[in-house]
Lab assay of single mutants.
Amino acid sequence: MSIQHFRVALIPFFAAFCLPVFAHPETLVKVKDAEDQLGARVGYIELDLNSGKILESFRPEERFPMMSTFKVLLCGAVLSRVDAGQEQLGRRIHYSQNDLVEYSPVTEKHLTDGMTVRELCSAAITMSDNTAANLLLTTIGGPKELTAFLHNMGDHVTRLDRWEPELNEAIPNDERDTTMPAAMATTLRKLLTGELLTLASRQQLIDWMEADKVAGPLLRSALPAGWFIADKSGAGERGSRGIIAALGPDGKPSRIVVIYTTGSQATMDERNRQIAEIGASLIKHW
């Protein structure tokens, strides 16, 4: 067993022997301040990774656009098919120029040779490549099948209805392509620590998230040296922004954090800054 596999296998073990965790309302004060600064709703939840206990939450059962955070769930569904012998990570998928959609920095470079399922998941999570996500959605049967996968996990809230990039439209009061912070946090925890996926697939999923290259201005910008984070960000229309993450000190994750916002007129930089400040408060009061 590799060191990384050992780390993920012992996530519940280490967490069980940690000192009790206590909620700190100071972080919620910052979440509410972010709402004021952005002029928009902000949803927040913080779960203990081992027990699933909610440590703090704000608007945990209000719907927010998922945006690209759905790509972690998508690759979880792909990995479940791999575990069941219905898919192979090494299978190569070929596609054409007509398949390319807006923001496809990886797939646009491989029109000639195609990409493997493993490479597509890596591109979808680490670079948020939209064509990679659409190609992977095709392998599982489309958005409705991802929703069905989530329902089978016990998540009857999260739903995907459309493809990239239309799913980022974020129309107010439109339930399409949305989740709730509580539902997303619980589902992410199941994917990373539950028995739904094999140990190898859980490790692969967290490795992809740990290698995320496009979430630097968010929670990662607030992390002290030595902290662990595996995350996936999302951005959408109407001032929408979000991030889902597993993080913790001492090089291992111990909490799940989900943050979503929508309806702001603020710039992307300002949305990023507010999420980073929430992260800084979380870490300060850990």
Rank of each mutant, 00 (worst) to 15 (best):
G141I: 05
S122L: 15
I283T: 09
D99A: 10
L223F: 05
A182N: 09
C75K: 00
G226I: 03
V42I: 13
L111T: 13
R118M: 10
V82M: 06
S128Y: 00
A185K: 00
L19T: 15
T262W: 08
D174I: 03
A34R: 02
H5N: 10
G114C: 04
I243T: 04
L28V: 11
M66I: 11
M180I: 12
E102G: 09
N98L: 15
E108C: 07
G141R: 06
M115A: 06
W208K: 01
D250F: 12
A225Y: 13
F13H: 06
D161K: 03
P25W: 10
K109P: 07
L218S: 03
I3F: 10
E145G: 15
F228C: 07
E195C: 08
G141T: 05
L205Y: 02
T158H: 01
H110Y: 11
S2D: 07
S221A: 13
S68H: 00
Q265F: 13
E210C: 12
R241L: 03
A211W: 08
R92Y: 10
S68T: 00
L197G: 04
V42P: 00
E164P: 01
L219W: 04
L167V: 13
L191S: 04
I244D: 00
G263H: 07
D48M: 06
A170R: 08
G85C: 08
P20R: 13
H156K: 15
T147G: 10
L47W: 03
A266M: 13
S221G: 10
T198G: 11
T187S: 12
M153A: 13
Q37N: 15
P181R: 00
K213A: 15
W163M: 13
D212V: 04
G248F: 01
S221K: 13
M115D: 01
L282G: 03
A230C: 14
T267V: 09
I11L: 08
D83Q: 09
K190N: 14
M268I: 10
L205K: 00
G194A: 11
Q88L: 12
D212L: 02
K252H: 14
M153N: 10
A182E: 10
L196K: 15
T158I: 02
T187A: 09
K30H: 07
P253G: 09
T178R: 02
Q204D: 08
L196P: 13
S51V: 06
V8T: 15
D33A: 15
P12L: 11
P105H: 06
Y103F: 09
M184I: 14
V106Q: 10
L282D: 01
H285D: 07
T198R: 09
I45H: 05
T126Q: 09
L191N: 03
Q4E: 14
P165I: 08
T139C: 09
S96E: 13
P172T: 12
T107M: 05
G263S: 08
I140G: 04
L219M: 09
R91I: 04
T138W: 10
G234D: 00
G194N: 10
G52W: 05
G216H: 08
I244G: 02
A245C: 10
F14G: 07
L89C: 05
S264Y: 04
L137S: 06
F228L: 06
P25Q: 13
